[in-house]
């Protein structure tokens, strides 16, 4: 396996924004323990701006690092800006990810989209969120 970048290792060893937000405006949980990663992302929204984001993640080093990075990236962003945060942006901000770990960045994007979707639902507004179609890897059971 390729090595992790020093930025990934830094976010893994000292992740930012770990925890829960009580009465969060949006919560998204994605992934599956069978595949080895589950991400839960909480957002607090005031005046259309994400004022806080926290996460809890069960997963490998890359899963924790991408969770940490995606929460960093969306804090202070408007909802519209947050909707545009892609998995590629998360991976790039981490100085790249090993090929086999790219699905972790997809999961981070999904967790964010899922939290935003939940935010719209809680507000009772039709959600414009499109979940990414590609979930990263196949689960063929041998």
């Amino acid at each position: 396996m390729e090595q992790y970048s020093s930025k990934v290792m830094d976010h893994f060893a000292h992740p930012h924004n770990v925890g829960e937000i009580e009465n969060a405006d949006g919560v998204g949980t994605v992934g599956n323990p069978v595949c080895g990663d589950v991400m839960r992302l909480y957002i607090k929204v005031e005046n259309n701006i994400i004022t806080d984001a926290k996460f809890k993640t069960f997963g490998c080093g890359a899963a924790i690092a991408t969770s940490s990075m995606v929460t960093d990236l969306v804090k202070g962003k408007t909802i519209d800006e947050a909707l545009k945060v892609s998995n590629a942006a998360v991976a790039e901000a981490l100085g790249g990810l090993p090929k086999v770990k790219m699905h972790c960045s997809v999961l981070a994007e999904e967790a964010l989209k899922s939290a935003l979707d939940d935010y719209y639902k809680k507000k009772g507004v039709a959600s414009p969120v499109k979940m990414p179609a590609e979930s990263g890897h196949e689960h063929d059971m041998e």
């Binding site: 080895g36 490998c60 080093g61 924790i64």
Partner: peptide, 23 residues
């Protein structure tokens, strides 16, 4: 998850293997 434990143990100078899907 196994890989996370493995990486943290490695930071403490302890080398183990992991049976996790992720490694």
């Amino acid at each position: 998850e196994g890989e996370s434990m493995l990486l943290f143990l490695n930071m403490e100078g302890i080398s183990v293997s992991s049976g996790s899907a992720c490694t």
